[in-house]
Write a protein that binds this DNA or RNA. Structure first.
Lengths: 209, 209
DNA sequence: AGTTAATATGACCGGGAGTCATTATATAAC
DNA sequence: GTTATATAATGACTCCCGGTCATATTAACT
């Protein structure tokens, strides 16, 4: 059944072509890139795009998920080199931050899906997909915090999930600002001091004893 | 010169009528409310709207600034009743959170202006206006933290501004989630436990000694 | 070659932001 | 009171964009 398989493969290739064109343009112009532009970049007609993606938002989400996979690889890599508890927490924290700073367009795209507007236009199951993936990624944070509690380094009277959520949203909140001012602070992380202070304060706040 | 003054007054009244209609509709439908709808609600033609506001986004920003004034009154009121340092920090923290939860549309509208998309469509001086107002509001947070340091309750090796920024963005980050899930947790703040844990950890992290 | 199935196309539609020539209204001049 | 002028309001219109669909093209099968 070589033909069916080739067809399947060609379909995947086409989808990939479209995602690549879309990513390029979303990186370049943000959400305002148009479907016509993406079609032109992919050397396909607009109608064809809609053969493979139900909507512009679905294309958007595909790009977001690509970013999630990148981040996950990075988290795994960074965690391998880190042994000590606080070092592991920082590894997850800065892996997330650096990923977002190095891939600002991914970050913006992802943040966009926290707006009412985006969610209102997107089918519930797509939103659910994003939520599930987000939850999986957050487990990396929950994991290192739980390790810290088990080893007695962190206080045990805080819910690890809530703490992870808090740190994640704290980082995201600062990133919102950092990503907006992309031109400042050449050579080092923009907002470096803010990110450092933030995690220092939190770590001091959860240390046992 | 009574006529010129009356004209001036009528102009302000018209602007107010438009903002009221816009706010109603933004509350109801979010950013997706249309200029035609707003015009109809204000009992004016669409063209008239553009006589008083350069763009939909400028109208949006006017609504945001209204929200800022509301928040500022609340901050002042809450701070009057709070004497002790940590109590004052919490007063500012929860005044901000409750304001945002009670005025979700204001919050969403404001958050929208952290997106690339919105900023790209808005004139630099309007963006600047928002930034300045935001900075002024943040001074309430910076103030109570600085008080805490001066009284020796908080460690002095953290920049009060950075700490305020961190807590503000932490709250905003959690609010992003809380506002999305507006239907849950009737009767108490949604995400109550998360907000509580977040400020507890931070306060423990900055206490002197 | 002819038939059918699968893909691709782009003109077209609906709807929304923003414009502008025209109309209406208020003030000033005589 | 009438006419001229400045000011304000209007809504039909343009342009743009996401999404659709009847038609055309290509590939597969007999």
């Amino acid at each position: 059944m070589g033909i069916a398989e080739r067809r399947e493969r060609e379909k995947r290739e086409r989808i990939n072509t479209i995602i690549l064109a879309a990513r390029d343009l979303f990186f370049e112009k943000g959400y305002r890139a148009t479907m016509d532009e993406i079609a032109e970049r992919a050397e396909l007609s607009k109608g064809t795009l809609y053969l493979y993606f139900k909507s512009k938002d679905e294309l958007y989400i595909s790009v977001i998920l690509e970013g999630f996979h990148l981040l996950e690889s990075r988290l795994k890599k960074e965690l391998k080199g880190a042994k000590e508890v606080e070092e592991r927490v920082r590894a997850v924290y800065y892996a997330f931050i650096d990923h977002c700073l190095e891939n600002k367009a991914y970050f913006r795209t992802t943040q966009y899906f926290l707006t009412e507007d985006a969610r209102a236009n997107t089918s519930p199951d797509l939103v659910e997909t994003i939520n599930r993936s987000t939850g999986e990624l957050m487990q990396y944070g929950v994991g290192v915090i739980r390790e810290g509690m088990e080893k007695g380094v962190f206080r045990k009277d805080v819910d690890p999930f809530i703490l992870a959520l808090t740190v994640w949203r704290m980082a995201t909140g600062i990133l919102d600002l950092a990503v907006l001012e992309s031109d400042t602070a050449r050579g080092k992380r923009p907002y470096q001091e803010v990110f450092d202070t933030a995690i220092d304060v939190v770590l001091r706040g959860v240390r046992a004893g």
